[in-house]
Design a protein around this nucleic acid. Structure first.
Lengths: 104, 104
DNA sequence: CAACTGCATGACTATATAATCATGTAGTTG
DNA sequence: CAACTACATGATTATATAGTCATGCAGTTG
């Protein structure tokens, strides 16, 4: 049986990959069908589909069917908050490493 | 060369693993030496050391030497914010899945 | 300086992950 | 119903990751 900590790791893992981050970024403005997503992030349809299903399973995305198309959306708006905080940390890290370079 | 999105994935990856989450949780109250950390999270010293070094490299932890001991600490307080948000999402997910069970 | 302490790392194993190509399938349309 | 569209999935490959055991190494102490 999965513990609470495993669930937390699953959510974070669902965000911790470049292709998936690109998808999250693209879904910021709202739901999109797969046919829009994979060209936008420049990945294969099959690969994109796997990542979408993975994020669906871990509870990061939600899915809606409409005719032939399937629309994915960010399920919890908090996810975007996380991504934004990470962006902030990265900026701090980069400017810090930049300072270290200048010091040499 | 690494892109910004790769750096973001690296930070998230550093958090997206049960053993590392346990370490983060244990470091909430401040810096600790390795000799305190690995018994607290009930992992081998070598394994703990690898995870600590990994989180150090990705910028999640900082390190301080003092005699024989090496103290690790959470470098960016924002990291705790992220973990807290994830906990919130997990709780929402679990209560939602609980509702689904009742519906059956 | 010999023995010890605290941590890191090499070598290895088992497992997970990401990506690709080909194919399958549900639903739509002429 | 045949052809098509949009998406998912099987099979495979290459690479990454987590963990273990043994060993190395820096710094401390008697």
């Amino acid at each position: 049986m999965k513990s609470l900590i495993d669930f937390r790791a699953d959510i974070l893992k669902a965000l911790a990959q470049p292709t998936r981050l690109k998808i999250i970024d693209f879904l910021r403005d709202g739901e999109r069908c797969v046919c829009e997503i994979f060209p936008a992030i420049d990945e294969e349809q099959s690969n994109t589909s796997r990542h979408l299903n993975m994020m669906l399973a871990s509870g990061v995305l939600s899915r809606r069917k409409e005719g032939l198309k399937i629309f994915y959306a960010i399920k919890h708006p908090e996810v975007l908050k996380i991504v934004d905080i990470v962006t902030l940390i990265v900026k701090q890290e980069i400017s810090e490493r930049h300072e270290l370079m200048k010091a040499v």
